[in-house]
Design a binder for these strands. Sequence first.
DNA 1: CTGAAAGCGCTTACAG
DNA 2: CTGAAAGCGCTTACAG
Lengths: 352, 352
Amino acid sequence: MTSPTLSDVARAAGVSYATADRVINNRGNVADKSIAKVREAVTSLGYVRNVAAANLSRGRIYRLAFLIPRGSNAFFNRIRQHIDHAAAHHVSERVTAEVIEVAAFAVEGLQDSISALLERDFDGVAIVGLQSAALEAPLAELRAKGVAVVGLVSDLPRAARAAYIGIDNIAAGRTAGRMVGLAHGGQGGQVQTFAGSLDARDHAERLTGFREVLNADFPQVTVLDPIMTKDDAQVLQAQTQEVLTQQGLTALYNVGAGNSGLIAALRGGQGTRPFCVVHELVAHSRQALMERQIDLVIDQRPDVEINRAFTVLRALIDAKDLPPMPELVPTIYVRDNLPADALTDQMKAQDT
Amino acid sequence: MTSPTLSDVARAAGVSYATADRVINNRGNVADKSIAKVREAVTSLGYVRNVAAANLSRGRIYRLAFLIPRGSNAFFNRIRQHIDHAAAHHVSERVTAEVIEVAAFAVEGLQDSISALLERDFDGVAIVGLQSAALEAPLAELRAKGVAVVGLVSDLPRAARAAYIGIDNIAAGRTAGRMVGLAHGGQGGQVQTFAGSLDARDHAERLTGFREVLNADFPQVTVLDPIMTKDDAQVLQAQTQEVLTQQGLTALYNVGAGNSGLIAALRGGQGTRPFCVVHELVAHSRQALMERQIDLVIDQRPDVEINRAFTVLRALIDAKDLPPMPELVPTIYVRDNLPADALTDQMKAQDT
DNA sequence: CTGAAAGCGCTTACAG
DNA sequence: CTGAAAGCGCTTACAG
């Protein structure tokens, strides 16, 4: 009834507990004959290692760090909340997480923050990264020290991290494109796009995906070149106001941040407004959805991302195989399938 | 550095380990003075109970059962896979899960299966339920034995279970309605609906939500009364073929199962087809999405549901507070945000 | 009302 | 190459 333990395996194999342990954990220094006997006992008994007991005996603790852009960006605030929440949830598993704020979107600042990590005793770090060769050297040093490194939300140079945890931004853009296309109901139209900066890879990729779908499947809808906003709400507000006076505009799509400005402009507008799609469910985009200033939010589920970051970092630290990692997929929100509210929304990652 | 243990608390409070344990776990039989001292030590030291160690020492095992409708329904096959997967993932936490198949949608069969559970030693069961007073007596007996009971996907009588784990089907219907409305791009149209049976509460609720949104926000779109299909693919195929010959039909929405028939009919159709929305992402709906026979799938994320069932049942068995349970929210899939594939899709609940 | 001790299933030195 | 033993942080009888 109750599952077999290592003692059962050792007894069945006719070896000592310690020897059975050695083959289970590949510690070496075991005679081939013993290995064979233990392996056999394991399969015939259906032995499964009790990870909780192993961690307890080993007294392991996992010290994690998250490098997140400083600033008042609503999305990253949400990320920070999820980290705190996940950390609280993991205390009993002996994992601690510290959020370290770094200068936003600045290669040098990030580089310095990574170097500073060398002085600290972390076991794993998740970094909201940038694509810059300048990060490679400090990251290599960090990993040489045995620290597990993953990219989060925005990737690091590929060779410099063990995994990337974030959505496929081309898919996100395609999803937005599909929705905008569908909303035209077979009629023609013009979509104004907005982006923070095309140096930001995620922005560029979303735009690419968006264009792909509209060009291929909705050729009667024209995609206008993006207005650059630096993710600044003021810029977005001014530009949106201006754009709303254009004739023939049927949709708006912002691949970046600064949506509070866009929403403010829409709130002030009169008459029918264009179909509006933005990214990331935060307080203001949520409210705008409910109050019908916008139609759709594409969300990357930061709760799921943070949860996965914890799982992946722990697996890396334990030098275990990485768990299967299906691509993270963008979630579509309309006013009818919104999660309960900001607070409970925080807790969602528990499931899923 | 390392977190305080119960020994630390006991020492700081000047009591024995056992006494400290008694107050931590509210076992009673402790002098008020001791309670106060221990409480104080706990907060000043920041003690957190190590759940893993507690479970280990207690040698607890969790025997779970899942009562799932028998038959070849693709959705429930997916549910079964997720149960097996979650069970495999939980072996190291000493939880086992057994799937018990019951006669599909038959009150008496379900009633018998629940009674049969009394002979078995389960700690918790999740049941794909029905709304029937006939289930109340056997469920009460089961719970009197100390077995934790939750409704899964389709609820049990409210008083007869500790929790319900499934989506809000009105929200699911509303979401479908929003999408169908948007896809009309401001033009008028006619939607043909399909349902298995209006006795099935989930079907009725979806239809209600669907109508709500279209009547309120897209009054130019007419919702036709549902064609009853008994979730039978053959019926769906025949009915869809017939319906496709109608003039002015702009959309199709099936609240129930049997979609392989609907898809077959669409595949055989010629010319432009209506906008099509169905429920549940399974092999054939996924393929139909990719091959453009349908436009949208509303999914209830069985992986998330099963994961939550495990969590909730364990919490109930431990007589712990139930974890926060935000409403499960329907997920919208188009061809551009599909999860990687059926297999990896199985693993998604890990995050989530 | 309080305490000492064995045991949960492992890992980690330590001694052969 | 192999084994005996202490200890991880708890819970559970058992004895006062």
